Amino acid sequence: MARAICLRALTGAAKTRQQLADLLARRGIPDDAATAVLDRFGEVGLIDDAAFARAWVTSRQAGRGLARRALRAELRAKGVDGEEAEQALAEVDDDDERAAARRLVERRLSSLRRVDRPTATRRLIGMLARKGYSGGLAAGVVRDVLDETGFGTDDPDPDLHDPDLLARPAWDT
């Protein structure tokens, strides 16, 4: 029974040993039977927490732009131990983290065109903080992107001062 439960769970996506142990406990499988099945699955390579951690870090860092701190917390919640988690997190260096933060800010910036610079700065830093970035890194990346794009340094709506644009009918613009 424990074997069938684990195989079914592993069909959808890779799982950590801890996730499978928790599943077996919820299903009422005795500890000794669960341990025997989990040990065997580990021996044959169906459970590999180190590989799970590497894949998780790669996927979540690239896809969601999460910082190492957030990735570490997610791995801990999935039951990946400290050493395996740290080895997986070592694949993400400071440059990768900064580049991911920059992509997140650049992607979000277009939706903030109607707010002033302090509001945009606060919202962008908050977004990065929720993704696990440190305050210093977040503030630096936001400042750099806003400076490079000239966000908030020019007239908030230059079209208001263009007499040619104002003279044309709205459907003509």
Rank of each mutant, 00 (worst) to 15 (best):
D147R: 14
T153Y: 14
L20N: 09
P30M: 13
A100V: 03
D95E: 14
E74P: 03
A99Q: 13
V142K: 09
L20R: 07
A50H: 11
L128V: 02
T153L: 14
T11C: 09
I125M: 11
G150K: 02
G152I: 09
L146I: 04
G79E: 04
E43R: 10
D95A: 15
V142P: 04
L23W: 07
K131E: 05
L137S: 11
E86R: 11
A51V: 08
T35Q: 13
D155K: 01
A100G: 10
L109G: 10
L24A: 05
V142T: 00
A77L: 14
A120T: 01
R76T: 07
L166S: 14
D39N: 15
S111C: 04
L7G: 10
E106F: 03
G152F: 05
G135A: 08
R143C: 01
W171N: 03
P158N: 10
A67Q: 08
E97V: 08
R103I: 02
A120V: 02
L38H: 05
R60D: 04
I47P: 01
P163N: 07
E148T: 09
R114H: 06
V142D: 03
R26M: 06
R113D: 05
A90N: 08
G140Y: 03
V105R: 09
P169W: 06
D96M: 12
K78M: 11
T149P: 03
W56N: 02
E86W: 04
V57S: 05
T173Y: 05
P158K: 10
F151L: 05
Q61H: 15
R26A: 07
L20I: 03
A9Q: 14
A100C: 03
R168F: 10
A4F: 11
V115P: 00
L7D: 13
D81V: 11
D155H: 14
E83P: 03
L146G: 03
D116T: 02
V57P: 00
P118L: 09
D162Y: 02
Q87D: 13
E97I: 04
A120E: 06
L104M: 13
A25H: 13
L166Q: 15
L146N: 08
A62H: 09
L38I: 02
P118M: 03
V115F: 08
D157A: 05
L75H: 10
A36W: 00
T58S: 11
R114C: 01
S134R: 10
K131G: 04
A85I: 06
V37A: 10
T121F: 15
